[in-house]
Design a protein around this nucleic acid. Structure first.
Length: 738
DNA sequence: AGGTCCGCTATTTTT
DNA sequence: TAGCGGACCT
């Protein structure tokens, strides 16, 4: 009993109710900063201590490796069970583990390997080319998207109908070809891990029976992010006896575009007759920040309904800065960061959050110039770097000669005289006989011109020899062999530019990574195969933390789940955030708003918002109106920060047709969705103000909503009453002010 | 085989 | 603006 008291004692009432909920399907609606991980981990501990559930009877699933590691650590601490054999992992990690364990039942080769996003795209592209399809029409990325979307919803080609649509018919055919090819090659993509695992268990009652009996308690984090297959997988594992406990927040659903289905929360309630608990007390932010967050998110319909509150009162107002351009915006942020540093806060207490990665640049430049350390999240991760993937391709080929993706990747890297025509021979052989490239290469080699035959033979022999040399060696040594004997290391060492140096360092780092790698899981997989799977499934950090205290830069998406004492939400402009592609789509806009909610709720003490009136991006200057989200905030919580010197600046005044002097003071009421005033820079002329009514000879009357560029290239976008939105060249379209 | 030039494109991202 | 892929040249 004392354990229970201890477990429940540190919780608030709502948390306690959820943790100690009866043994039945349970949904916890957990607001941002309300202690959801805490509830999940305590529930796990509660089940074990109070209900005598064996740690092996528990399955805890998350989306990211980081979340999984954290959850495992916290459960182990609660139970004082370090290094326990708890099944805590990501959906993909657990599916992978099950497939390794039951590779025969899954009809996979024992040495099956995992394709990451990039590998998958290459394979799709290869297939499209083989089919002599036009890559402009059949964009590999889009075909890949189609395949993954269908897989994410559990659909195989045989389930799909073309409905008389020839495009769709072709996509279905490509999906079919793609999957057959994967099966021949013994490779599995991310979506396949999940779907294959689902089908395996579903179609083999003894397996389903076994795992249902074993995992009576399935705990799922971030349930709003589950896709169709993940939902079905949870349902399958639970059967009618299982007791799922899932936690999520519909207001933080920001991944619909990649297959997440918020509806799964509702569905879960219905399918399982789950009881619902709400966690609404927030321990993170000031009441000012929560007030703003609540106010914004209330504008969305179809919420499950939840309102955050905090015991803390007051807080600093939210500060809004209207920047002149993106550099001014960066300077503003920089100054605030300096202030905070001066007041003794660590740099890592501040985060700059933006909608799209391209926005990081201005901040990086400003921080760099000011010599303030910063860290940018996102971008290529360690195991995704080209040189690392090349090295891994050699290693994969040593383990599985059928891996065509790897074969193509390194067959002529470093260059060894295997040209396009040789490769075409191999490919056409492979195509006509349906064989992997490796085997096709062996078959066509004798019929090739002597030189090509020699080069190809050299490659085939190299791989065989590398594989033989690796035999019996330990993992780091095997990796070292892969890097050295392949010639990759030397290849990069000989590169002229400094990039080669960095690549060599990365390759050496790969050996270190192998050295520090501890294979987990009881599956008797060779360490190399295990390492390769690890590399794909857990592709590592974007940037190794260099230990310096630094400002954090990341997208709003990657900030989910994190918190910072000071948050800068920047680039709050229509067309940027909400993004252009969402603005006119009533389906997408609520998700942008949720993203805004996620951003606001990252802030603990201070929240700064900013927008720029002109922004250079993609080599052009855009003038955008302040984001509607700014206008959706409660005005009384906002304090407008004026430019440092509220020096008079020329303001464009369309009525007088010339510039006049005006001060910022009082020029704009706080938090009005902003009738933007655009101030022309030197050498720019702005013919129509945003929001101005104009008439066009052909399209009639409309409103100027945006413009781009300047000089002769200047264009305006006008929303016409009849005819919708049009981009017009200012120089030609004779627009008349109304 | 390696370099160079041209044209295209450009949210959000984990596994 | 920048990064990529493809075509073309040496």
């Amino acid at each position: 009993m004392p354990e229970h008291h201890a477990l429940l004692a540190e919780l608030n009432e709502a948390q306690r109710a959820a943790v100690a909920a009866p043994l039945a399907a349970t949904l916890v609606l957990a607001g941002a900063g309300s202690g959801k991980t805490r509830v999940l981990t305590h529930r796990a501990a509660w089940l074990i201590t109070e209900h005598g559930v064996s740690p092996q009877g528990l399955l805890a699933v998350t989306f990211t490796n980081k979340a999984a590691a954290e959850m495992r650590g916290r459960i182990e601490t609660l139970l004082d069970l370090p290094g326990s054999s708890l099944w805590v992992g990501t959906f993909h990690g657990i599916a992978h583990r099950l497939l390794r364990r039951h590779w025969r039942e899954a009809a996979l080769p024992q040495q099956f390997q995992i394709l990451d996003d990039d590998d998958q795209q290459r394979l799709v592209r290869k297939l499209i080319r083989e089919q002599n399809l036009d890559e402009q029409r059949w964009v590999p990325r889009e075909v890949q998207g189609f395949i993954n979307r269908e897989k994410d919803e559990g659909r195989r080609p045989k389930h799909l109908q073309d409905r008389g649509d020839p495009t769709r018919r072709e996509l279905i055919r490509l999906y079919d070809l793609y999957q057959k090819r994967c099966d021949v090659l013994g490779v599995v993509d991310f979506a396949e891990l999940l779907l294959r695992c689902l089908e395996m268990i579903r179609d083999q009652p003894p397996l389903a029976d076994f795992y249902r009996r074993r995992f009576r308690h399935v705990l799922v984090d971030e349930f709003q992010d589950t896709n169709g297959v993940q939902y079905d997988w949870v349902r399958l594992l639970c059967g009618s006896e299982g007791l799922p406990f899932v936690v999520g927040d519909d207001d933080q659903s920001i991944y619909r575009w990649r297959g997440a289905r918020v509806e799964n929360m509702q569905r879960f309630r219905k399918d399982f007759g789950a009881s619902t608990f709400k966690l609404e007390q927030n321990y993170r932010s000031t009441s000012v920040i929560l007030g703003a967050a609540n106010h914004v998110i209330r504008l969305n319909d179809d919420r499950l309904g939840k309102e955050l509150w905090t015991a803390a009162k007051g807080g600093e107002p939210i500060r809004l800065y209207s920047a002149f351009n993106e550099r001014d915006e960066a300077d503003f942020v920089l100054e605030r960061i300096r202030e905070h540093a001066r007041s003794g806060l660590p740099l890592s207490a501040a985060a700059i959050l933006y909608r799209s990665n391209a926005q990081s640049r201005a901040f990086e430049e400003a921080l760099m110039a000011a010599r303030i350390p910063y860290r940018v999240y996102g971008g290529l991760r360690f195991f995704e770097r080209a040189e690392i993937k090349d090295a891994l391709a050699y290693l994969r080929l040593c383990g599985n000669r059928n891996d065509d993706v790897s074969f193509e990747r390194v067959v002529n890297l470093p260059t060894r005289g295997i040209g396009q025509s040789t490769l075409e021979h191999i490919r056409s052989e492979s195509r006509s006989l349906g064989l992997p490239l490796w085997e096709s290469a062996m078959r066509v080699r004798p019929s090739l011109p002597a030189r090509a035959a020699g080069a190809l033979g050299g490659f085939l022999a190299l791989i065989e020899k590398m594989a033989a040399t690796m035999e019996g060696k330990d993992l780091p040594e095997q990796v070292r062999i892969g890097i050295e004997d392949s010639g990759l290391r030397e290849h990069h060492a000989r590169e002229k530019d400094s990039k080669g140096e960095a690549r060599v360092e990365n390759l050496d780092e790969l050996v270190n990574a192998a050295d520090g790698f501890a294979p987990e899981g009881e599956e008797d997989l060779p360490p190399l195969a295990s390492f390769l799977a690890h590399a794909t499934l857990e592709s590592g950090e974007t940037q190794a933390a260099d230990g310096r205290d630094s400002v954090q830069l990341m997208t709003l998406h990657s900030a989910k789940g994190l918190e910072f004492p000071t948050v800068f939400m920047v680039g709050l402009e229509e067309g940027l955030f909400p993004s252009e592609r969402s603005v006119f789509d009533p389906e997408k806009l609520p998700e942008e708003r949720r993203l805004c909610y996620v951003g606001i709720t990252r802030a603990m003490q201070r929240l700064y918002l900013s927008h720029a009136e002109s922004r250079r991006m993609y080599g052009r200057t855009d003038y955008r109106a302040p984001s509607r989200f700014v206008g959706e905030l409660p005005p009384e919580l906002i304090e407008e920060v004026r430019p440092r010197l509220s020096v008079a600046r020329p303001l464009y005044d369309p009525d007088s047709g010339s510039s006049r002097r005006a001060s910022f003071a009082g020029s704009r009421p706080a938090a009005t969705p902003a009738r933007p005033v655009v101030r022309p820079q030197k050498g720019e002329d702005v013919p129509y103000r945003l929001g101005a009514r104009v008439r066009h000879v052909k399209f009639g009357e409309g409103v100027v909503i945006r413009y781009e560029g300047n000089g002769e290239n200047q264009q305006v976008q006008v929303n016409f009453e009849r005819g919708g939105q049009k981009w017009l060249m200012c120089a030609y379209a004779k627009l008349e002010a109304v």
